[in-house]
Design a protein around this nucleic acid. Sequence first.
DNA 1: ATAGATGCAAAGAGTTTGCATAGGT
DNA 2: ACCTATGCAAACTCTTTGCATCTAT
Lengths: 140, 140
Amino acid sequence: MSTAERNTRQRDAIKAALESAQRPLSTQEILEAANAQVQGLGIATIYRNLKSFLQSGEIAQVSMPGDSPRYELSGHGHHHHFHCTRCDRLFDVHQCPGDLKNLAPQGFTVERHELTLYGVCADCKNHPTQAPDHARQPAA
Amino acid sequence: MSTAERNTRQRDAIKAALESAQRPLSTQEILEAANAQVQGLGIATIYRNLKSFLQSGEIAQVSMPGDSPRYELSGHGHHHHFHCTRCDRLFDVHQCPGDLKNLAPQGFTVERHELTLYGVCADCKNHPTQAPDHARQPAA
DNA sequence: ATAGATGCAAAGAGTTTGCATAGGT
DNA sequence: ACCTATGCAAACTCTTTGCATCTAT
């Protein structure tokens, strides 16, 4: 019956960081957030717990070309991502094109899919000529 | 007028490797293929040229959660990818769900999209119980 | 009391960079 | 001849691992 995983303050802090974020976080961002709650929490603990969460399916890894992976809680329901090419922020997209089973070649079985939209977010569209002040992954 | 880029044997070999591959290649795969053509070609040259090709838009980087990036020529037309979770091979998918502009939130502009399907490929479905012999990124 | 989790530091793996030399133009 | 690209090796960055200690159960 035992879950084998213990409830440590570190583990809780990491989970909490992911829970309070409204977007996928990088390991550094997780470290900063979790460290604020638990003094001295080390990066190795982040990695170990992320791996554990990934294996249990509690979190999902989101990867972007040319960028280090981000992590987010699973169970926010099925959703996709929008990557603003101007400010580099990632947004959740809760719409889904739906039925993609028939896109795959003959004989292939599609179990799930991931979709990333690229473009310009509303904020960036409102500031056409100036440099994106809100750019580069804001704190919240 | 000068393109600033020189035509070296190394650069050509790297391009050729990507051209002849029917799937996105990892840096190691590119190194092996290119090295077969140009003795002593080093990994640093691979990275430098990939970066150059990426910037010029000649190739695209494909990233998968938990995996190192792969590279493929642009201009194979718009396509997506299928990742077999059993044998880990990546396949091209030339079907496209099409119009995804309206999935993004209000005020967002969608310029392009990327779609990855996950599931079991035809080969793996034909060998249900046994270990995937064809697994782990075959040579061709 | 026991066994898993943590923190630190060292080890690995992947990628980038400096510098002398080869080679394209 | 000039000046960029290459090859090698060192430097960096990111991630993983070993080990003694701590701590949840």
